[in-house]
Nucleic acid binder design. Structure first.
Lengths: 241, 241
DNA sequence: CTGAAACTGTGTCCGGTGGACACTGATTGC
DNA sequence: GCAATCAGTGTCCACCGGACACAGTTTCAG
C-alpha cells in the first residue's frame, strides 16, 4: 500500500533507491540519469531552478523533452536526482575525534554545498523523499553525536538545528549576492527602507549601522548552537548526584 | 537607479511599502489588495501555494484574472502580499522583561504562524523583499536583545538563527502531516528505507528506533540556542578582567 | 534466419500557467 | 457636456508538464 505503483513519493523513492530496471531488449539508452541530472544542474547553476524545464534540459542534451520521460517519471523526480548529485557525498570525518569539531566541519561543508548550488535551497524545501546521499549527511551528524549521552531523537533534533541554521545563512548569503558583495541590490533596498521608516524599526535601524565585515553569521550561530549542545552534554555527563 | 520603474524587487517594494497611488478619476475599484490577498491565502491554506494562480484567485472573487493585474503587477507581488497578511503582526512583548522569555515567546509565535499557513515555508524562500509586517518581526528580536552587550550584527545573526530553527522545525512538522501524526506517509517511507539500508546508516537506524512522543524538536533547539546566547551574554557581561 | 517482442526516441495534442494588449464602459473633474 | 481617466474584459501568445500513439532499432526465441 505504501510503495505501490502510485505517482506519489513512492515513485521518487523507487528512482532514488530502487534497483535500476535491468535493460535487456531494445535499443541501448543513449542517455543516462547521470547525464540528465548533470544537464539540469548546469542550467540551475547558471539561471536558477526556475529555468530548469523538461525542454531546456532536453535541449541542452540535444534531445526532445519527451525522451526524458523514458528515464525520469516526472519533473519532481528530475529535481530529486539533481539534488542528490549536487550535494555530493559528505567527506569522511578526517581525524577530529571530538563531536564538536566534526559538527563544525560538517556544517561548513554543507554551507559550501549551498554556496556552490544556491538552487538547492529552493529544491530542498517542502516535504520530500530524501535520497541515499542526503541521508548520508544526516547519518554523519547522528554518528558524530554517538557517545555523548544524547538520545536518538535528540540527535535528530540537533541535526535539524544545525541544518536549519546553515540553510538560513545560505539564504541570506544568496540574497546578498553571488559573491562577496557586488551590488547587494536587495540588501541596499531593505536598508533604505529601514532607515526611511526608522521610527517604526528603531532597534533594527540601530543594528544595521555597522556592517563590520560580516560573513561571520555562520560562525556566530554555529558557536551558539555548539555551545548550547556542549552545555547539555556536560549536564548529562554528570548524572544528577 | 535602485528604485526606478523596473519590474524587479523595486516593484514589490513599492507595492508593500506604498504609498498607495491616490485614486481620483474613473470608476471606483471593486476589489482591494486586502481582499485579493485573503482570497489567495484561502486557496493556499486549503491546497498549498502551488494551487494559487491568477485565475484561481480571480475565480474565487468572481472576477477575471486580468482584472487582478489592475491591483497587482504580477504573481510574485501577490504572493508577497499574501505573506504579509498571513504572518500578521507579532504580539507585543507582554511583560517578560528578560530577553530570554521574549525570544522564547517570539519563536513559538512564529512556529504557530508557520503551522497555520504551511505554504509560508514555500513563499518565504529565496531572495525577496520583506514587507513592513515581516520586518516588524525582525525588529522584535533585535529589540529584545537591547541591553545585552551584543553588537548590532550579532543581534541580526541571532534573529536569523532563531528564525532558521523555527523554519526547520515547521518544515519537518509539515512533512509529518497536517495534524499530530495521521498517516505520516513520508516519514514511514523514510524510516523503512533507513531500516532497509541499516548497514549504510547504522547511527541513523539506531536513532530512529524510539519515537518517544516528539514535538519536542522546537523546544530542544530553542533551549540550545538560548543557552548558547546566554553563555555569550554572560561572557560579555564580565569584561576580560 | 526469421519473426516477434521489447524498448528508445519523436510528434502531436491537451489543459493550465503568467502575462501583453486593445478594448468597452463607467466615473469624474473641468 | 465633454474629455480624461481608470476598472474590468476578451483575446492572444509563449511556455509549462505531461498523455499518447507511433516509428525505428535492437535482441531474443524459435
Amino acid at each position: 500500500m505504501t510503495s505501490g505503483s502510485d505517482d506519489g513519493p513512492g515513485r521518487t523513492a523507487r528512482l532514488l533507491w530502487g534497483p535500476r530496471p535491468k535493460p535487456t531488449r531494445g535499443p541501448k539508452p543513449a542517455l543516462s540519469l547521470e547525464r540528465i541530472a548533470r544537464a539540469g544542474i548546469e542550467i540551475a547553476d547558471a539561471e536558477g531552478l526556475g529555468a530548469v524545464s523538461m525542454q531546456r534540459v532536453a535541449g541542452l542534451l540535444d534531445y526532445t523533452k519527451m525522451s526524458l520521460y523514458r528515464y525520469v517519471p516526472g519533473k519532481a523526480e528530475l529535481v530529486a536526482l539533481m539534488v542528490e548529485a549536487a550535494v555530493g557525498a559528505p567527506e569522511a570525518p578526517v581525524g577530529l575525534p571530538d563531536w564538536r569539531g566534526q559538527l563544525d566541519h560538517w556544517a561548513r561543508q554543507l554551507a559550501e554545498a549551498f554556496g556552490a548550488h544556491p538552487w538547492l535551497l529552493d529544491a530542498t524545501v517542502g516535504p520530500r523523499v530524501m535520497g541515499p546521499t542526503e541521508l548520508a549527511w544526516l547519518e554523519r551528524v547522528v554518528a558524530a553525536l554517538d557517545g555523548t549521552g544524547l538520545t536518538g531523537p535528540e540527535r535528530m533534533d540537533a541535526a535539524a538545528l544545525l541544518a536549519g541554521h546553515v540553510r538560513g545563512i545560505a539564504e541570506q548569503a544568496r540574497a546578498a549576492g553571488p559573491d562577496g558583495a557586488p551590488e547587494s541590490e536587495l540588501l541596499a533596498l531593505l536598508g533604505g527602507l529601514v532607515r526611511e521608516h526608522a521610527d517604526r524599526f528603531p532597534a533594527l535601524a540601530a543594528a544595521i549601522t555597522a556592517p563590520d565585515g560580516r560573513d561571520q553569521a555562520l560562525d556566530f550561530g554555529l558557536e551558539r548552537i555548539l555551545d548550547g549542545l556542549e552545555a547539555l552534554i556536560a549536564r548529562r555527563g554528570r548524572p544528577p548526584a
